[in-house]
Design a protein around this nucleic acid. Structure first.
Ligand SMILES: [Mn+2]
Ligand SMILES: [Mn+2]
Ligand SMILES: [Zn+2]
Ligand SMILES: [Zn+2]
Lengths: 151, 151
DNA sequence: CGTTAATTGTGTATGATTTTCAATAGAGTA
DNA sequence: TACTCTATTGAAAATCATACACAATTAACG
């Protein structure tokens, strides 16, 4: 399922006794329309929605991001900036991972089909239900390598 | 390099104009003697050292963990518990990764040799100097699957 | 050994995320 | 459509991990 339609979201929420709210719809839409390679923090999302004229409280933002990550709709990323970032959790043809410079936090996305396969196989072998798997590479970028000894 | 000797740590610190302190030595020793599969938070480490009779201030703990992670000596893990965990960063024969239940945070370690290879190749291709790569699998464990709809 | 800057410990600040709680509003049902 | 029930929201306050400030200490190096 590449595009998570509103009705699919509603179905999945209602199945669990939860509700589809305008806020959750709005947040899903934002991520679906987000340019490839963009990652949003809670605060980013809060500001984006405010500028867009459909504000949502920061509490609800945090609650929704957490919920949607646990449902497997969003991926929660640790990009070394001191707060989490989120992006759409997209399966096979679109799966990608991140290479992060530990000094300047520059992040590069890359694709490697083996990763999702390994994640799927490993989860299955242990009887786990897979939600997301991410290879995070911590490294020092060429620019920061040249800068002498900083940090 | 499987065992990071004290003198190796000293050399690497001094090369950068930094110092080998008793605190840094102590912390390295703790991780080297940590049972396989154990991960320590800053607070865990703080308490462990206090009980062990060689207390180190929490500030220094935080500073040292961050430093040693950026040097590639430790790995910084996000295990879903709201704070970071650390373990020794061990190369090839000992490299492993983590499968985490997003509901109960139970964590399983697993090995797959492809992962480190992919990380190495990807970093190299982009001109990055590799420090660590980790495949984190977020999933729901068998126990939590059986529990109905919780969370 | 003396010099010098890195490091430490204590106390305090910061900032991301969570919680509380009263008001609101989805979802299922008659 | 109206009604009930409880999940959800927004605002404010609370938490808690982590960072910072600064004076005192100390590792490195000549
Ligand atoms: Mn991405
Ligand atoms: Mn581990
Ligand atoms: Zn960099
Ligand atoms: Zn579980």
């Amino acid at each position: 399922m590449t595009v998570y339609t509103t009705s699919a979201l509603k179905a999945e929420l209602n199945d669990r006794g939860w509700r589809l709210t305008p806020q959750r719809q709005t947040i899903l839409n934002v991520f679906q329309q987000l340019p490839k390679g963009k990652h949003l923090s809670a605060e980013d999302l809060y500001n984006l929605l405010e500028n867009q004229g459909e504000p949502i409280s920061l509490s609800t933002i945090y609650r929704s991001l957490k919920l949607m990550a646990r449902m497997g709709i969003l991926r929660e990323l640790e990009l070394g900036e001191g707060h989490k970032h989120y992006e759409l959790n997209q399966p096979y043809p679109h799966h990608h991972d991140h290479l992060i410079c530990v000094r300047c936090n520059k992040t590069i996305e890359f694709k490697n089909d083996s990763i999702l396969k390994i994640g799927t196989k490993t989860a299955e072998k242990e009887g786990y239900h897979l939600l997301d798997c991410q290879l995070t590479i911590h490294a020092i970028c060429p620019t920061c390598q040249r800068a002498l000894l900083p940090v």
